[in-house]
Amino acid sequence: MFLTVMTYMGYLLLFIGCFFLVVSAIGILRMPDLYNRLQAGTKASTLGAMCTIMGIGFLHPAWWVKCFLLSLFILMTNPLSSSVLARASLRSGVKPYKLVVNECERYLNEEKGDN
């Protein structure tokens, strides 16, 4: 009984994970510029990957601890890397799409003044 519940939980998590991975892929295709693409890509793919890995953990209880650790690593490093990508592209002058406000321009100019 317990094993059946675990199996169903595992498949459910796998399904949710796959759904969010697909959403992130669609997001990357549909969004207009790099920053919005990163937004869609990071969030959905982080939860997607975590859910998929945890689902595997539920299906193979012996791997549970490793899977948990893996998803924790993804949780820590994924947003970091997307932040770094966004920062690098901002500094190398990738133009954002139709901003409502932009507090960054002044700051980037200050940076240029410093150097």
């Binding site: 759904f19 969010f20 959403v23 992130s24 669609i26 997001g27 549909r30 969004m31 207009p32 920053y35 919005n36 937004q39 869609a40 969030k43 959905a44 954002p96 799409y97 139709k98 901003l99 409502v100 406000v101 932009n102 507090e103 960054c104 700051y107």
Partner: peptide, 18 residues
């Protein structure tokens, strides 16, 4: 994110704040 990505009108209103 799923809502925004999957809705046909793509409701975004981006900006950079401090």
């Amino acid at each position: 994110v799923a809502k925004r990505v999957l809705s046909p009108s793509l409701p975004i209103n981006p900006g950079i704040v401090r």
